[in-house]
Amino acid sequence: MDGIHQWRIDAGGAAKAIEPGADDVAGLDADASGFVWLHADLAREGARDWLEAAGLQPLVRRALLAPETRPRCTLHGEGVLLNLRGVNLNPGDEVEDMVSLRMWITAKLVITVQLRRLMAVGDVLAEVERGQGPDHPTELVARLALRLADRAEPVVAGLNEKVDVLEDQVIDGISASSRFDLGTIRRASILLRRHMAPQRDALSTFEIEELPWIVPEGRTRLREATERMTRLAEELDAIRDRAQVVQDQIMDTRAEAMNRQMLILSVVAAIFLPLGLITGLLGINVGGMPGADNPTAFWIVTGGLVVLGVLLVWVFRRVGMLGR
Rank of each mutant, 00 (worst) to 15 (best):
L101I: 15
G46P: 09
L84M: 11
P58T: 08
L64V: 06
L81M: 15
V99N: 07
N90T: 13
R85E: 05
N88E: 08
E45D: 15
V110F: 03
T69V: 15
L51T: 01
V80W: 04
L75I: 00
A47F: 02
L59G: 09
I105F: 06
V113K: 03
L81N: 06
E78N: 12
D41K: 12
L51F: 07
G79K: 02
A32Q: 07
I111V: 15
D24Y: 06
A66F: 07
W37F: 02
H39S: 12
V60T: 14
V113Y: 04
A26K: 13
D49I: 00
K108E: 08
G46V: 03
A66Q: 09
G21A: 02
L65M: 14
R72V: 10
G21R: 01
G77D: 13
L56P: 01
L89K: 01
G21F: 03
D24W: 06
T69N: 11
T112V: 10
N83S: 14
G79E: 09
L42G: 08
R85L: 09
A40I: 02
L28D: 04
D97F: 10
D93T: 12
E78S: 13
H76G: 04
D31A: 14
L56T: 01
H76V: 15
L59K: 10
D24A: 12
L42I: 04
G86E: 06
D29W: 05
A47G: 02
T106V: 00
M98Q: 09
G77S: 08
D24K: 09
Q57F: 11
N88K: 10
L28S: 07
L59C: 04
P71L: 07
G77H: 09
L42F: 07
N90Q: 14
P67M: 11
R48Y: 08
E45M: 11
V87L: 08
L38G: 03
E94L: 15
A66Y: 04
V99T: 08
E68L: 12
L89H: 05
L59R: 11
E45I: 10
A107R: 10
A22Q: 00
L75M: 10
H39R: 09
G77Q: 10
A53E: 13
A107C: 01
L109T: 05
E96K: 10
Q114S: 15
D49S: 03
L42A: 08
R72D: 03
L28A: 08
G92D: 12
S100E: 11
L64W: 04
W104Y: 13
H76Q: 14
D24P: 04
R85D: 10
T69Y: 09
V95T: 11
K108Q: 13
R72Y: 01
A22L: 05
G86Y: 02
A30L: 11
A54G: 00
E68W: 02
G92V: 11
Q114W: 03
A43H: 14
R70D: 01
